[in-house]
Design a protein around this nucleic acid. Structure first.
Lengths: 238, 238
DNA sequence: GCCGGTCTGTACTGAGTCGTACAATCGCGC
DNA sequence: GCGCGATTGTACGACTCAGTACAGACCGGC
């Protein structure tokens, strides 16, 4: 029976596990391809699977019927989708959907619950990630409350760039406006401004990151705290 | 040795526990009085105690050195302060301080870790609360991003009212402006508006809640989601 | 009863964003 | 290579809130 080498593990959360815990996850995990707009967790519906992302990027958004949508969480290969299950919660009022297509390892909910019951190291590792998610959401609350549209956009692009292979982010202005909870023409203006600074290059349905340092400067300090906590608690991010 | 009756438990999280789990907590918990401005968790410092609040109200705020402060979490007798410890995290970049004085039961960190290791029912219950905290923070991100100052103020007053005995909230305009991350005169104006609607009555260093329904209307749908999830997952809130 | 700090009320200008509308551009499918 | 939906660029008035300043009101201490 072949023992997979750690270097083939694309999800960094799984990569941080003891080999024994990792093997236990791998034994019940199923590789899946995720297409844009796939809904991994539907608002108010029981969570059926946990997804450890390998190359896909997933957004968690509020699903206010009357109000507007806005993003409250962003997950890539540094994390997993299904934190509520870890906390013994079977469903959530928010929706998690695929923003950028890619691969993932999925585990059926009941199997996942057995896993974290039996493997304390796994539970600890996923708990650390759950806390980073909380930090990210709190940071988003801060950003939404006190930063300008341009700063928030720069922060979002950096966070997305962290989770993508390459520098091209396949997003439209309208999509960004929903994620940030702002007006679409406002995004167009902010993108022009960031482009003028040399941080990005904009194409149709795509933003290419050119200079992360310039983007960080444009983010006005709104980027980086959850990321550095991830490194402190879990290890090197991708 | 007297066995405390459930009805003497003022913290509703502890009240939701099996008697056996509760006794285990009570055995290592120490009653303390918390004064306004006491810092329960300092930014970046190891967390020394977990606090189950009985009548005090505690705010979690970002502690951005360069940037502004803003509230990302509010806890009263429905919860506990020290969620990071539950998730195996020893410190946090945010600060938790006492906003309204009162009583609490505190448990030393090492004892707390032993407790949740030995009592799975306790861990589950606290995990549910940790999830509600996440919802509350996500809801704050939504509010900060899409609601007006007046709506956000109404939401905050309702959330604080939920956690206080009586209808008088001892807060100043300047304090509210920090919690909401807005300008102090803006709070003054918004308070006048809510007062005109008949939802509250304002005095020096105090806001009295007169009509919750009017406040809810003024909150424009920004209030209530985490509260109803608390009831679904844990039980009747105070 | 006065003093000094805290709290509240009000005013003004400017920045940022909204809501909306509409034209221009792109790129895929037939 | 044409058409059509999707995407992007731009404009304009309106409104919210920021930043700042300052005066008046309150309240506890001496």
């Amino acid at each position: 029976m072949p023992v997979p080498s750690q270097r083939f593990i694309r999800n960094t959360l799984l990569g941080a596990l003891d080999l024994r815990d990792y093997e236990a996850v791998r034994a019940v995990a199923e590789p899946v391809s995720l297409a844009r707009r796939d809904v991994l967790i539907a608002a108010g519906q029981p969570i059926t699977h946990v997804h450890f992302l390998e190359s896909a990027v997933v957004s968690e958004v509020t699903a206010a019927t009357a109000g507007r949508r806005i993003e409250v969480g962003l997950t890539g290969r540094e994390g997993f989708v299904g934190v509520p299950l870890l906390l013994d919660v079977d469903r959530t009022p928010y929706e998690s959907f695929v923003q950028i297509e890619g691969q993932a390892l999925r585990v059926e909910s009941a199997a996942f619950l057995r896993l974290i019951q039996a493997h304390d190291g796994l539970r600890r590792c996923l708990s650390l990630y759950a806390y980073v998610v909380h930090l990210q959401t709190a940071d988003t609350a801060l950003s939404n409350g006190t930063h300008t549209l341009e700063e928030r956009l720069a922060r979002w692009l950096l966070m997305c760039h962290d989770r993508v292979v390459g520098n091209a982010l396949p997003v439209t202005h309208a999509f960004l406006s929903t994620m940030l909870g702002v007006r679409r023409p406002g995004v167009t203006t902010a993108i022009h401004s960031l482009e003028g600074d040399g941080g990005i290059r904009a194409r149709r349905s795509q933003v290419e990151v050119i200079d992360r340092e310039k983007l960080k400067a444009a983010a006005g300090g709104s980027y980086g705290m959850p990321e550095s906590e991830y490194r402190r608690l879990i290890g090197v991010a991708p």
